[in-house]
Amino acid sequence: MILQVEGLGKRFGGLQALEDVTFDLPEGQILGLIGPNGAGKTTLFNNISGVYTPTAGRVIFRGEDITGLKSYYVARKGMARTHQIVRPLKELSVLENVMVGACFGQYDYKLGKAKEIAHEVLEFVGLESRIDQLAGSLNVGQKKRLEMARSLASQPNLLLLDEVLAGLNPSEISYMVEIVKRIRAERGITIIMIEHVMHAVMNVSDRMVVLDYGRQLAEGTPDEVSQNPKVIEAYLGDPKLAEKLMASGGE
């Protein structure tokens, strides 16, 4: 198991944002994390990656308890993530952005080596022509790929992807899905992805976890999850989403 989440809970004052989330993630799998808006998906990422300290439970990463570890130490243990709302280092070039990922990830590369890795990764995500451009001047789709490149440059063992498909047009989506598949296939990186684009996440995930109001509603293969009555009920609040869910489950 690369990641074990055990009874994870997070409370903000009077608000229970996460409660008793438990799942295991074997190495090399892609785990889809879905749930209605406000279900606590990003909060879960924040608790795993050290942005927040959980108020209950444990996070075990590569056999080591990392609960409450600061985000920079978590990053240096081999976990990388992207942000739902992109956070480019605007006044730095695309290359420099990606070099930051390589320099301060788990391998602590020197600048020269980091530059090589950055070139390679930028080519992988298809941004090699934008290397000298300032990151702030990219469009949304390119910024998403930059986030991806930055996290890949740290050569992580586990990658947390927070809605990398949101805001992309259909051709960009299929390009990005392809990248996600290749990350696992060619680099053997384990992935957890939060996604609202149902058909895409159903398509690439080995297993899925469904959150609703901070609770874990279901866990299983995409087929199992899409036929789970509790999941369907949770999505009934959003009939369009429920429809999508069932449609894609039947693929």
């Binding site: 930051v100 301060f104 740290s154």
Partner: peptide, 8 residues
């Protein structure tokens, strides 16, 4: 915050 998440 983004820098910290990248390990700085």
């Amino acid at each position: 915050d983004a820098a910290e998440i990248m390990g700085v």
